[in-house]
Write a protein that binds this DNA or RNA. Structure first.
Lengths: 205, 205
DNA sequence: GTCTATAGGAAGATAGAC
DNA sequence: GTCTATCTTCCTATAGAC
């Protein structure tokens, strides 16, 4: 089997182990056992374990970035577009909670590993960047304007979704989390020119 | 030296090592070196390393909970109270970023360690609980009402602050983060009866 | 490319003198 | 209570036959 294919096989196995048992438990032995190959195959494909970790982080982060961009769900109105994008992201959190938990773990692993911290920082920049792109597309295609600098709003959305995801991973409570998500969507919609919004119970036109 | 004092000394040393180099690097040897005691003292005070980790988590989480409760800063108006509490929390993030980073690390360590995950979940419940207490005190003492269920609003605030903190720890940019914080405070104020708010640039009365 | 065998080291934990 | 010395286990990584 060619080395490239082996590498992919080992990266996938590593992701499975990390998802199931955490980054700290993903030893070379656990990974090769998961991939059902011998220990020496590992070091034939990767000079050091850190090279595999790097490949895993690249894979996971690339995956996450692609998904973030893919949630750009156009809607007839700005409100529909925003709620659709929020829900698209959230559906994935509900469907694959372990994957999101692993992302947090890898972020911190990278932060604590010399030479890897830039990867984690760049990734968080990308999240905000993807949301910024979404907002830009929204404002131009629907010819609306924002009352708030798009960079601030993008960072607000990125932070809230990140925090709510972690909160949900710890506390569960799907309905409660969904209520928070809807509230946040309300807030973002507030920032679009031409709308005037009052929370929930006493909504005015 | 009595064992209780030794324990405290070792817990403090462990926190210093964890803050500086991360949880994974906080080996028993690194901790005793930091505390300047011999390795056997460690096992005289703690039956196993996990006992120390538990003491560390208790110490950090207790500290965090106390701080969360302490940020209940009363103000003449609901708006002042909310902005004051937000800023009190944020000032601590700016002052002690490493301590917050460590809290995230310990949360994930606990989640991945059998028997410890309940500690992490309870802690996140406490954060939301502290904010809920703050909102309750606000509504009763100032005789205002919320347009949104307080549990939802509390969880919203907890998630946003948590996400923004992590975002800031990764990306820095004090001014940008402060702008997001202010925007979030605006949102929370929106949920108080009697106020009608339109974002930033075109504020109306 | 893949295997078995092992080097070399660091981790948590213990033994027993003082 | 504290020390030095050591045990056991598990890790990453390498050597060398096939």
């Amino acid at each position: 089997m060619p080395a490239a294919q082996r590498r992919e096989q080992l990266v996938d196995a590593a992701i499975r182990v990390m998802t199931r048992e955490g980054v700290a438990q993903a030893t070379t032995r656990a990974i090769v056992a998961e991939a059902d190959v011998s220990l020496s195959v590992f070091h034939y494909c990767f000079a050091a374990k850190q090279d595999l970790i790097e490949a895993v982080i690249d894979s996971i982060m690339e995956h996450a970035s692609a998904r973030a961009m893919a949630t750009i769900a156009p809607g007839a109105t700005a409100e529909e577009a925003i709620r659709g994008a929020f829900q698209a992201y959230w559906d994935h959190v509900i469907a694959e909670p372990e994957e999101h938990l692993l992302t947090y773990e890898l972020t911190q692993y990278a932060l604590r590993t010399p030479g890897f911290d830039a990867i984690a920082r760049r990734q968080y920049g990308r999240y905000a960047g993807a949301i910024l792109t979404f907002l830009d597309q929204l404002t131009t295609s629907l010819e609306v304007e924002l009352r708030t600098p798009p960079e601030v709003l993008a960072r607000y959305v990125a932070s809230l979704l990140d925090g709510l995801t972690l909160n949900y991973l710890l506390l569960g409570d799907t309905d409660g989390a969904q209520a928070v998500l809807d509230t946040a969507a309300d807030h973002v919609i507030t920032h679009i020119t031409g709308r005037l919004w009052v929370p929930s119970t006493t909504r005015q036109s």
